[in-house]
């Protein structure tokens, strides 16, 4: 679904490309450190209506077997999914 995360390399000045640098979707760092709260899905309540998937600004929610699943590598913990869920199947928990 999403591009994979690659090893971060260090570049010297001469190695920095002058034109188009890399292939599209070249990810080297995750965003999970931004979070102070995390969404947790209650699979018993989730019916796979996909509203959280549609409204996630970061696209970290995917639907597997009619249940929502979150990619915690890139979730920033904004909580839009928990607000959008009509069944209250997503709750926000504090990150420890």
């Amino acid at each position: 679904m999403r591009p994979y995360v690659r090893d971060k390399k260090t570049f010297s000045q001469s190695e920095v490309p002058e034109n188009t640098c890399f292939e599209a979707g070249y990810l080297v760092s995750v965003n999970s450190g931004w979070r102070s709260i995390r969404p947790v899905i209650d699979n018993a309540k989730c019916v796979g209506c996909q509203q959280c998937y549609l409204y996630c600004p970061d696209g970290v929610i995917s639907i597997n077997d009619k249940k929502a699943a979150i990619d915690y590598d890139f979730c920033k913990g904004c909580g839009i999914c928990a607000k959008i869920c009509r069944l209250n199947a997503i709750r926000m928990e504090s990150e420890r």
């Binding site: 679904m1 999403r2 591009p3 995360v5 979707g25 990810l27 760092s29 995750v30 965003n31 931004w34 979070r35 600004p57 970061d58 696209g59 890139f74 920033k76 913990g77 904004c78 909580g79 839009i80």
Partner: peptide
């Protein structure tokens, strides 16, 4: 497929 992924926009 996700075409805009891993971006550094503010949460929300």
């Amino acid at each position: 497929e996700e075409y805009f992924y891993g971006h550094k926009a503010c949460a929300g």
